[in-house]
């Protein structure tokens, strides 16, 4: 009995040695979101809002290339997301909203619907879950995307294709969705 217990303990100890200690997906997603959110808020406040709205030296425009203007904050974020996807960095992210101006950015999967509703109903809280897309299972985290500057609110409230026109500063306008394949 004592011998069996010793063998069992030794195997358990060895198994523990072989196990890599990783970062929990939630923690990893939170860290990635903090970078995305910091860049997004900085670009929105210190570039777009300052130059386009306050100092009015350049416009921010959807057709920024043609019109020699600044990319909109949502476009800037999508450009980053596409570069990350192209590099096959091991995760993907997207900016979605139930009130998206571009309808391709409305929630598409069941978990996206559920998560965006959750962060809207529970300000300040994040949503975590798993879902299968194609043949792959993903860990999916959804974070509130808050109106950090008057530029966000005025643009979305005034856009002819915006399905909602009563956004206020500090309100959740959509969500940042981060995914890892499991």
């Amino acid at each position: 009995m004592r011998k069996s217990a010793f063998i069992f303990a030794a195997i358990a100890a060895l198994a523990g040695c072989g196990e890599k200690s990783g970062i929990e997906p939630e923690r990893m997603a939170d860290a990635i979101f903090s970078v995305i959110e910091a860049d997004r808020a900085s670009y929105t406040n210190f570039v777009v809002n300052r130059l386009a709205n306050e100092e009015q030296v350049i416009k921010a425009d959807e057709h920024w290339k043609d019109n020699k203007a600044l990319p909109l904050p949502a476009q800037m974020m999508r450009m980053g997301a596409e570069r990350v996807a192209e590099q096959e960095a091991g995760f993907n992210y997207a900016l979605l909203s139930q009130w998206a101006i571009n309808k391709q950015n409305k929630p598409r999967t069941d978990l996206e619907q559920q998560g965006l509703q959750f962060i809207n109903d529970n300000p300040g809280k994040n949503f975590y879950g798993t879902e299968t897309l194609g043949d792959t299972e993903y860990f999916t985290a959804i974070y509130p995307d808050v109106a950090v500057s008057p530029a966000c609110v005025s643009c979305h409230n005034e856009h002819v294709d915006s399905p909602r026109t009563d956004f206020e500063l500090g309100e959740t306008m959509g969500g940042v969705v981060i995914r890892f394949p499991m």
Binding site: K65, D66, A81, E82, R83, A85, E86, N92, A94, R108, T109, E112, L133, G134, T136, Y138, V177, R179, P181
Partner: peptide, 18 residues
């Protein structure tokens, strides 16, 4: 200014469309 670049389809949420 390609309207449908390859990068647009790399997000896993497009899996069913792909």
């Amino acid at each position: 200014n390609d309207s449908h670049p390859r990068t647009k389809f790399l997000d896993p949420r497009n899996a069913n469309l792909l």
